[in-house]
Structure formats: structure tokens, C-alpha cells
Design a protein around this nucleic acid. Sequence first.
DNA 1: TTCCTCTTGTAGCACTTGCTACATTTCCGT
DNA 2: ACGGAAATGTAGCAAGTGCTACAAGAGGAA
Lengths: 183, 183
Amino acid sequence: MSSQRLSRDVLLPLLMEHVLTHGLGQASLRPLAKAAGTSDRMLIYHFGSKERLISELLTFAASVYAAGLEAVITTDAHPPTRADLLARILEQNAGPASQPFKNLWWEIVGGAARDLPGYREAARGMMHELLGWLERNMPPGDPDPAGGARFLLTVIEGTMMLSAVGHEDTAHAGLLAGGLLPS
Amino acid sequence: MSSQRLSRDVLLPLLMEHVLTHGLGQASLRPLAKAAGTSDRMLIYHFGSKERLISELLTFAASVYAAGLEAVITTDAHPPTRADLLARILEQNAGPASQPFKNLWWEIVGGAARDLPGYREAARGMMHELLGWLERNMPPGDPDPAGGARFLLTVIEGTMMLSAVGHEDTAHAGLLAGGLLPS
DNA sequence: TTCCTCTTGTAGCACTTGCTACATTTCCGT
DNA sequence: ACGGAAATGTAGCAAGTGCTACAAGAGGAA
């Protein structure tokens, strides 16, 4: 049991790296195994089935995402206004470093929409985490941190989606028109 | 050429119906052919390759989407405020009728993010169409129809995404806190 | 040592994938 | 009716899919 858990903990990061670059939908056992330095035989042995592998991979991805947010919390100073906070988040998400994770994210959303096993839980978890982070990092003295965080989250995700399909300028213009970005 | 075009026009709706219910990622030639009443052999004959089939299917889906929006334009009366318009759109999108199309939409977004051939064009086109529809249907006398439409689009898509992962309540609370929904 | 469980390698099975070779039918212009 | 092109059926190929049967090494407990 303990060595099984150990093996999985070793495998999951390698598997996730492969999934981040090659996509979740196209991931099949043999390429995954190769990326993790094992065989398909071993993946089935450790995870039971591909479905459970994917499911565990998603919860692992969610935990990595949460950890990344926590890391940001401790290092950043709080932006003084909602607009500054929003601008900062969008700027960070637009960077190339977060591209692979965003690609994975859309596959997770798609899986959640179709209710594939494990997808909705992972997606819900990540959004819950991000919402919590937002709420904790709202500008000091914000009149409605809870509502404001939810509002920002909605706007952020809309911007992400529009950016994914090449409409970042549309989203930007919308946020400006809504008075949500610093001029 | 003309009979080829005819065949394609007959096939595409049947193919799209199959894709709407079964998903785009899992769509392989033989099930697609079965749904359209032909053989994989014929699909390759008419479309050249699976990649081109998917590409044509996406532009077809985009045109269907556009036509659907146009139909709504002529039948609806204009809501008096932005909040009413937003509420009406969200209500319509939350209905079960638009569920299959939304499922397909997330796959398109994922494909666009990964830059698969044809995906980004289709996604861009549909968003362009929706944006145009919004702009044309902004409340009469709105001070900034162009910017307002872009703002609404961003908020709408964010709400769609959060709803897809089971966070519709979060989005709703956010819109209320942002003063974007009628009380 | 012996035994037992955990872990791993080798082959392979039944099936699906996109696509093609080849032959045949269908249909339209002459 | 005839000839050529378009359209379709049959069969199959090479590769890849998830997964399993079987055997064998590894490592610790007795």
C-alpha cells in the first residue's frame, strides 16, 4: 500500500507534464507510460484502469493548482483597488507560462459539461480554490469582498474564454467600457 | 462538383447531430458514417480526410449558430435595460435546449486554445456573430452600445463557464453584486 | 533458507483508428 | 446506345487502443 502510494506520487507529476503539453483527450496509455518512464502494463497496475488514472490525474492537477495559488498569496502585496487586482490577474494569466494549464483547463471544462467521471469535481475544486484566493485577496476596505470576488471571478473567466478564441481585444474593450480596468 | 456539394450539404446536418450528442473528440469515422447513413469510405471520398471533415463541420456549426441568432432577432422585443437583456440571455442559455450546443462549444474552445485546424476560426466566427447580435440588440438609448455589448459578452461567457463546472450560483451572486441583474 | 506478497517484463488479444486498392454501379452528355 | 466520369461497395492494411495472462525477479518475515 505504501509503496503503491509512493509510486503513484512519483508517476502523477510526470503524467501531468505529458498531459499539459499533449492534451488530455489524446492521452493514451502507451505514450503516457513512456513519458513517465514505465509501461502501460504498470499504469494499469498502479491505477486499475485508464479512467481511474485520469480521475486521479485531475484531482492531482487540482491540488497543484491550489498549491500554486497559495504560493502567490504569500509573495504578493495586495493591490489597492479591484481594478488593479483584476489587471494583475489578467496580466499574469496572459503570460505564456500559464498557457499549458489553460489548455488543460478547457478540456476539463468540456469534460465537466459532458459530466465525464472526475472532471466536474476537479473543475469545481479549482474554481472554489480560485474564488477563495480572490476573496482573501480583495483590496483592503472593499465594501463587499464576497460579492466582489464572485463578480471578478465571472469577469476573469469570461475574459479567459474570449482570449482563448482570439477575442482578447473584445474582452479588453468590454472591461474598459465596464469601468473594471484602471485607465 | 454540384452533386458533391449536394452530398455534403445532406451529410453535414446529420454529422452535426451526431457530434452534438456524442462529442467532437470521440467522433470517429465509422460512427459518424453510421449516423449519416453512409460508410467511412464515403466520408473520406466526400471530404478528403477526417481533418477536413471536422473543419467543414465546424464552419457549418458556426453558420447554424449564426442563423439561430438571426432568428431570435426578428422575433424578440428589445429588453428595456442591460440587466433585462442579460437576464434574458442567461435564462435562455440555461435551458436544456442549448445544452448540446454548449457541450460542443467547450470542445471548440479547447481546440481553439490548442490551435487545432479550423477550431479557432469557427470559435472566432461564432463569438463575432454573438457580439454583433448583442450590439444590435442593446437597449434603445444605451449610452455605449459597442462597449456595453463587449462588456455583456465577457460577463455572459464567464457565467457560461462557471455554470459548466457547477458554479452557477457563484456567477449569479457575482452578477448581483456587480449590479448587472434586475433585482 | 523458505515462503509469500509486491512489483515488473514479455506477449498478445480483440477491437478501433484513418485510410486505400480495386472493382463495380450509376448517371449524364453526346 | 455509348463512353467517360462520378459515386459507391467490399475488403483490407498498418497502426494504435485498453487491458490481460503468465511468468519471473525482488524483498522482507519466519
